[in-house]
Design a protein around this nucleic acid. Structure first.
Length: 191
DNA sequence: GCCAACGTTGGC
DNA sequence: GCCAACGTTGGC
């Protein structure tokens, strides 16, 4: 097996910060108001369950609104729990599919609250280590706003990222390209 | 379907 | 607290 590269976590799980205000413990952490959230628009069976949830599925939900359950990554959770506010907008990104990229825009319509699937032993995102009086995982509710006028493929974002890295530009530090596995992430002009 | 690049776990 | 092993993400 090849040696594995090791990196420090950018964010260790915080000691339980019961307050959801922007006091993140780290004063250097920028405050964000725009986001990118990944979801899989194509059928994939995980533990017998189809995890498909593209922007079409969101649009088909009652009130075009859904809870963003299943996030099981501390950094992604922290962004949702600590910084996402009602009214914030997020890109809806299609991942793990034939044509990955940004499909549309959603709005945060409910701030973070405990993700119920962590307590459901039948759910694929069940977490036996999480206790109801001290939930580990949180989610927000998002509402469909609109499709992109034009689908923005990852390939295009990648090309811009390359260009902006050498010549400067908004996408030079885009998390999508610098932290490719983070499923909930901020976006900014980032110059 | 493959597999690189991680993020997490657990032995020590 | 280190770090090897393992599990997962997600592009290709």
């Amino acid at each position: 097996m090849p040696p594995r590269k090791r990196r420090k976590l950018d964010q260790k799980p915080k000691t339980k910060s019961s307050s959801k205000t922007s006091s993140l413990g780290n004063k250097d952490t920028p405050t964000y108001s725009h986001w990118l959230m990944k979801s899989e628009p194509e059928t994939r069976i995980e533990k017998g369950v189809d995890v498909k949830f593209g922007i079409t599925e969101l649009k088909a939900e009652p009130n075009q609104t859904a809870c963003w359950d299943g996030v099981r990554n501390y950094q992604a959770r922290n962004f949702m729990r600590d910084q996402m506010k009602v009214g914030h907008k997020a890109f809806f990104y299609h991942s793990n599919c034939k044509e990955p990229g940004i499909a549309g825009i959603v709005e945060i319509v409910k701030e973070s609250y405990p993700d119920h699937t962590q307590f459901d032993s039948k759910d694929i995102h069940f977490d036996s280590s999480s206790k109801k009086d001290n939930p580990k995982w949180f989610m927000v509710d998002v509402k469909f706003v609109r499709m992109m006028k034009r689908f923005i493929p990852l390939s295009e974002l990648k090309a811009l990222h390359l260009k902006h890295k050498s010549r400067g530009g908004a996408l030079q530090n885009m998390f999508l390209l610098t932290r490719p596995r983070l499923s909930v992430q901020p976006v900014s002009k980032g110059v």
